[in-house]
Amino acid sequence: MDILKDLFYTKDHEWARIEGNSAYVGITEYAAHSLGDITFVELPKPGEALKQESYCATVESVKAASEVYAPFSGKVISVNSQLSSNPELVNQSPYDKGYFFLMELSDPAEKARLMDAESYRKYTEGLSK
């Protein structure tokens, strides 16, 4: 299972790629794989204010619906509009073409509460035991 080095991770399997004062957000390959074929993603609206660890999106497969929580607090800058017609991008390219949205960070120090790649790898290994 792919876990990228330069990203930050949550225990609910979201990832964030920080670029300056903003971050791209998506769900990890681990999450995408365990959900199976993704059929629908409900994204926040651009401009929406998010709070760290609060609900921000829903991702659905045929027989499951999972909530996605914001890895950071801040405002949604733009969303990945590709996902409405091609939800399978989340399965095919979870860290790139299947990202969910770009957000502005109100407090980049919140990353202290996230995991780095190594900790997340250990965390997922613990889950599959």
Binding site: T39, V62, K63
Partner: peptide, 12 residues
């Protein structure tokens, strides 16, 4: 589109 329904999403 069963993810709308009670047997999957329960109270939501």
């Amino acid at each position: 589109l069963q993810t709308r329904e009670q047997h999957i999403r329960r109270h939501k």
